[in-house]
Design a protein around this nucleic acid. Structure first.
Length: 290
DNA sequence: CGCTGTGACCGGGCGC
DNA sequence: TGCGCCCGGTCACAG
């Protein structure tokens, strides 16, 4: 499951690999076309696949950046600029290769849904096992309003204050803290893995109501989340099942996790508990977290 | 108008 | 072996 650190890893590798190159051709899979014909949107969200392919042809790749868990690719054609916006969903992965058989793992090779042929002769390939990934071609972010409602980057100066202010809104007051820190309108890029880790580190029960945590503890919680995200970036992200960098390699952060996916508390040895919060499985230590 | 709850999108993996 | 169900990031839409 790619969260912010995993997306950051992809962007850091993708940027030098594709910036300055031109997309000569785009081909979506038959699956994408069939879904579209059936009236569903599969990966390609705001355009018909055939139109998307045509629109992307001869696009110059200017810049690859990350915003929250989204990959933004600034592209340009005929002096007009566009934003190609991609979300990896649960299982999306990019590869820059010369032949599809360079994708070593069958599960990724089997689920290739977009092939961008670059002027360098390389293939920029998007594989997505569960097809929760998204691609949009926008002229401005305003075309997809949810992109404007994201919380600031967690490393930005105003991010902590933004979090604190959101917490004072009535609609968040009585919600479990875990649900709130995983809400992209409150904090950007913190998914289940890092929310679980940060709450464990802070000794806060994931179901604890927002208004039952002091401002000081909220500030410390925010800083903990930010530090864990940074630590994960430095360690190549977490590979729980399907995250791979563009060389198909797994990350290293999963070895440093202390609570996510654990049966026993790494501090006191108690059996961990699990409950559903905001529709998602939440693991915690009943002895260490209150 | 704004908030809340629910469904939709999927295939891997697991339990029975 | 085989079948059915659960999981999850995000958004659309209904109420």
């Amino acid at each position: 499951m790619p969260e912010l650190p995993e997306v950051e890893g992809v962007v850091r590798e993708l940027a030098p690999a594709v910036e300055g190159k031109i997309i000569k051709k785009v081909e979506f899979s038959k699956t994408v076309y069939d879904a579209c014909a059936a009236g569903k949107q599969c990966i390609v969200k705001n355009l018909e696949p055939s139109y998307f392919e045509e629109a992307m042809q001869d696009m110059f790749i200017k810049k690859v950046t990350r915003r929250s868990k989204y990959i933004f690719i600034d592209v340009e054609k005929n002096h007009q600029t566009f934003k190609f916006v991609n979300h990896l969903g649960m299982t999306g992965a990019w590869f820059v290769i010369h032949h599809l058989d360079e994708i070593h793992e069958e599960k990724f090779r089997k689920h290739v849904h977009a092939i961008f042929t670059l002027d360098s002769g390389e293939l920029l390939v998007f594989s997505d096992i569960r097809r929760f990934g998204e691609m949009r071609l926008l002229t401005t972010l305003e075309e997809h309003p949810p992109l404007l409602e994201m919380a600031p980057e967690p490393f930005a100066d105003d991010a902590c204050l933004y979090f604190l202010q959101k917490c004072t809104l009535p609609k968040y007051q009585n919600k479990p803290i875990k649900e709130v820190i995983m809400d992209g309108h409150v904090i950007s890029g913190c998914g289940n893995i890092y929310a679980t880790e940060a709450l464990f580190k802070m000794g806060i029960h994931p179901a604890r109501k927002v208004n039952r945590i002091s401002k000081e503890r909220k500030v410390k919680l925010f800083e903990t989340i930010r530090d864990i995200l940074r630590e994960s970036i430095e360690n190549g992200g977490s590979t729980i099942s399907d995250y791979r960098n563009i060389n198909g390699e797994a990350g290293g952060m999963q070895h440093r996790l202390k609570m996510y996916g654990k049966k026993q508390c790494s501090t006191c040895g108690s059996k961990t508990k699990s409950m559903t919060i905001g529709g998602r499985t939440s693991v915690y230590c009943p002895h260490c977290q209150h």
